[in-house]
Computed example of a mutant assay.
Amino acid sequence: MLAIVAAIIFGLGLLLDLLGASLGAGITGTTFLLLGLLLLALHQAGVGTASFRTWRSDWRGRARR
């Protein structure tokens, strides 16, 4: 999920960079680039990827029953 959000952020950053626009208060294409990289790093670290179903019922839990 975070990777999809990062892709959208990268796309917005690219559009801002191509248009040479900023959203005021220092928000530019570079800001979106850094935010996208942060989201990708969180995705690679495993943040937001676990669900309750996979946490509770893995192959070891089924073997014990």
Results as ranks from 00 to 15, higher is better:
I9G: 00
M1K: 07
F10S: 03
R60Q: 11
I4T: 14
R60H: 09
L19I: 05
A21C: 05
L19P: 02
A6P: 00
T54K: 10
L34G: 11
L38M: 15
G11K: 01
A41L: 15
I4M: 11
G20Y: 06
S57M: 11
A45V: 14
I8E: 06
V5P: 00
G11F: 04
W59Y: 15
I27L: 07
A50S: 03
R56Y: 01
L33V: 06
W59L: 11
L40Y: 08
T31N: 11
L2C: 02
D17L: 13
L15Q: 13
A7Q: 07
R62D: 13
D17M: 08
A41S: 12
R64V: 15
G11R: 05
R64M: 12
V5N: 02
L39P: 00
M1R: 10
G61V: 03
A41T: 13
I9N: 00
T28P: 11
L23D: 01
I4R: 15
L38T: 14
T30Q: 09
G36P: 01
I8W: 14
A25C: 11
G24I: 01
L34K: 08
S57V: 13
G24T: 01
A3P: 01
F52M: 12
M1L: 13
L19W: 14
A41K: 10
R65D: 05
G20E: 02
I27M: 04
R56C: 04
L39S: 07
T49W: 15
L39W: 04
T49G: 15
G26I: 00
G61A: 14
I8N: 13
L34M: 10
I9F: 06
L23A: 13
G29Q: 00
T54R: 12
G26Y: 02
T30I: 15
L42R: 01
L12A: 06
L19H: 08
T49K: 07
G46C: 15
G11W: 03
L19G: 06
V5Y: 04
W59V: 11
A25F: 14
L19N: 03
F10C: 05
A25T: 11
L19R: 12
A3Q: 04
R53W: 05
H43F: 13
R53K: 07
T30H: 10
T31A: 05
L37H: 04
L33P: 01
T31R: 03
L15Y: 15
L35A: 12
L35M: 13
G48H: 09
G13E: 00
G11E: 04
T28C: 10
V47I: 05
L39Q: 03
T30V: 12
R56N: 05
A25N: 05
D17Q: 14
V5R: 02
R65H: 08
T31F: 06
R64A: 11
T28R: 06
L15P: 02
G24N: 02
G24L: 10
A41P: 07
T54W: 10
L14D: 03
G48C: 07
T54P: 00
T54V: 09
A7R: 07
T30L: 14
G26H: 02
A50C: 07
G11D: 03
L35S: 03
W55M: 03
G11I: 01
Q44G: 12
R53D: 01
R64H: 08
G36D: 02
A21G: 08
V47R: 01
I8C: 10
R65L: 10
I27R: 03
R64Q: 12
L42K: 01
A3R: 07
R60N: 04
R60G: 09
L37R: 02
A63K: 07
A45T: 13
G24P: 03
R60Y: 15
